[in-house]
Simulated scan of single mutants.
Amino acid sequence: MKKFAMIVFLICVALITTSCNSTKVFYYGSNFGNEIKATYTYFTGTEKKNIGLKEGDVLRMEYESVVNEGTLTLSLLIQTMR
C-alpha cells in the first residue's frame, strides 16, 4: 500500500510540475483582504495582489522570508490613474 501511495504521489508531482508555467510543491497560501500569505517547499512563478489606494492613503508592507535555494524577488509597482 505504501508503494502504491508513493507512486500516486510521484505522478501527481510530475503532473503539477509539467502542466503550467508555474510550479508549486507543498504550497499552502491565502490571498484575502489586503494580505498574501504562503508557505511552500518549491515555488516558481508569480503571486500578485492589486490594492487600490486613494490620495493620502498609507501603504504599509511587511514581509518575512527564508530562501534556502534560488532567489526571491519582491516588487512594488505603482500605477497612477489620471
Rank of each mutant, 00 (worst) to 15 (best):
G33W: 02
V25S: 04
Y27F: 12
T46I: 15
G52Q: 05
C12L: 15
K24F: 11
R60C: 08
T41A: 06
A38P: 00
L15R: 05
S30T: 12
K37L: 10
T46M: 14
T39W: 01
E55F: 11
T44C: 07
A14M: 13
G45D: 04
I51L: 12
V58T: 14
F43C: 05
Y28L: 07
V25Q: 02
T41E: 02
T39Y: 03
Y40Q: 01
T46F: 13
T18W: 13
V13M: 04
E35T: 12
V58C: 07
A14R: 04
F9D: 02
M61V: 14
L59V: 09
I16H: 01
C12A: 15
Y27S: 05
F9H: 03
G29C: 00
E64P: 00
T18M: 13
G52S: 09
K24S: 12
T18C: 13
N21P: 05
T18F: 15
L59Q: 08
G29V: 00
I11A: 14
G29Y: 03
C20A: 15
I16K: 05
F43Q: 01
L15T: 08
V13Q: 00
G33M: 02
F26Q: 02
V66C: 01
E35Y: 08
T41Q: 04
V58H: 06
G29Q: 02
F32R: 02
D57E: 08
K37S: 13
V8K: 09
Y42W: 04
N21Y: 07
V13A: 01
L53W: 00
F43E: 02
N21H: 10
I11P: 05
K54N: 15
Y28F: 07
Y28G: 06
S19L: 13
E35I: 07
V8Y: 06
N50W: 06
A38T: 06
M61D: 03
E64I: 02
K54L: 14
E47L: 13
T17W: 13
S30K: 05
D57T: 07
E62D: 11
E62W: 01
S65H: 06
L59R: 09
K49M: 13
E35G: 00
E64N: 08
Y63S: 09
G29S: 05
S22Y: 14
N34E: 14
G52F: 03
N31L: 04
V66M: 06
E64H: 08
N21C: 12
K24C: 10
E55S: 15
E35R: 08
S19A: 15
N21E: 12
V58F: 05
S30D: 01
L53S: 01
V66K: 10
N31M: 04
V58G: 03
C20E: 15
F43R: 01
D57K: 06
K37V: 06
V66W: 09
K48C: 11
F9Y: 11
I16C: 02
K37A: 12
Y40V: 01
A14C: 13
G52H: 07
T44K: 09
S30I: 03
Y63C: 01
G45Y: 04
F32I: 07
L53T: 04
I51V: 12
K24R: 15
K48H: 15
E62S: 03
T18S: 14
Y63K: 06
G33L: 03
G56R: 00
S19R: 09
E62Q: 09
N50T: 13
G52K: 10
S30R: 09
L53H: 00
V13E: 00
N34T: 13
S65Q: 04
A38V: 06
I11T: 12
Y28T: 10
F26D: 03
T46C: 12
V66S: 04
